[in-house]
């Protein structure tokens, strides 16, 4: 075991544990009041203009139809084309798109690498570097690195020079871009300086996942994986967790148009919430820390309020 093993394990474990914990926490948050925002992508036949089932006279007499494909398609466009940014913030798109594409490609690269390893494509086998998958991975990593560097440079410059962004950019924003940029710079240099970058990366993953020795890497390779380990460790604590929280902002808020019908999933939970004790201290609420939400909502205004009312 070397230090890089430990660094990588730590990064990976923290990443998985914290992401999982955060997802659970937000998924089990109280049922909130409806606050949807149209277009809602699953409205069958209506999503393209932003319509909802509420357009139907006595909608409850008709079956509620959800078009889940609509959700998938909208999400797909958002993830693959960064549609929102393209439509509302074009100049940023030219930085944001390569930046995100680089990350996607890097993730695909890593997954393919791991799959290849699982299916026995190890660096020691005959003709490894001529294997078409390896050639493909090589191209992937090149594109990812170049996109990543371009994206990071554009975003960094925009954050410095664009007054719209500058005011709202904190130390962490610059740091994040530099960190991710450095990841690509190192992979780029690695590709440039070594003939066998992909083979070395295979060696690395084989080593860490089989808990065995990693064949020695060039210095830049070590830097790359230390950076990656740190990035994994760090990511769950940043706003960049939007990569999975977006599921909740869309599905659980923007598109949450679920009516409160008898027997619906959230009714029970809602009943519990109505019995939460309330502490707000403005006099018109009339809370005392023990009265429940429902009791307060069903009681008249406290008399004090009546005088100045």
């Amino acid at each position: 075991m070397e230090l890089i093993h430990l660094a990588f394990y730590l990064g990976l474990i923290i990443f998985l544990v914290i992401v999982f914990a955060k997802a659970i926490k937000i998924a089990t948050a109280p049922v909130h009041l409806r606050w949807e925002l149209y277009p809602v992508a699953h409205e069958k036949g209506k999503a393209h203009y932003g319509g909802s089932y509420l357009e139907e006279f006595e909608w409850w007499t008709k079956p509620l139809q959800k078009n889940l494909l609509g959700e998938v398609w909208t999400m797909f466009q958002e993830i693959v084309f960064l549609k929102g940014v393209w439509e509302h913030n074009r100049s940023l798109w030219f930085g944001s798109a390569p930046f995100h594409y680089a990350l996607y490609l890097y993730v695909v690269f890593t997954i393919l690498t791991l799959l290849s390893l699982i299916f026995g494509l190890t660096p020691t086998i005959e003709g490894f570097s001529n294997h078409s998958i390896i050639k493909f991975l090589n191209v992937l990593l090149w594109i990812s690195s170049i996109f990543g560097i371009i994206g990071a440079i554009v975003l960094f410059l925009k954050r410095i020079f664009d007054s719209n962004l500058k005011l709202y950019s904190n130390a962490s924003h610059y740091f994040n871009i530099l960190l991710i940029g450095a990841l690509y710079v190192t992979s780029f240099i690695w590709l440039l300086s070594s003939e066998n970058t992909i083979q070395e990366i295979f060696g690395f993953y084989l080593g860490v996942f089989s808990f065995s020795q990693i064949p020695s890497l060039p210095i830049v390779g070590y830097i790359h994986f230390y950076l990656l380990s740190f990035f994994l460790f760090y990511l769950p604590f940043t706003h960049m967790t939007h990569f999975f929280m977006k599921y909740f902002t869309y599905h659980k808020v923007r598109w949450d148009d679920e009516p409160n019908l008898p027997g619906s999933k959230f009714r029970k939970k809602l009943m519990e919430q109505l019995n939460f004790p309330v502490q707000w201290s403005a006099p018109h609420i009339g809370a005392d820390g023990t009265k429940t939400w429902l009791i307060i909502a069903s009681s008249p205004l406290p008399t004090k309020e009546k005088k100045n009312g």
Partner: peptide, 23 residues
């Protein structure tokens, strides 16, 4: 959650995940 279950989830999501992209 006791005092503001009504909007806690969307509120926390908004607090934690804005990328300050100004879109």
């Amino acid at each position: 959650k006791e005092n503001n279950w009504t909007f806690l989830q969307p509120l926390v999501l908004t607090m934690e995940h804005c990328a300050k992209c100004q879109t």
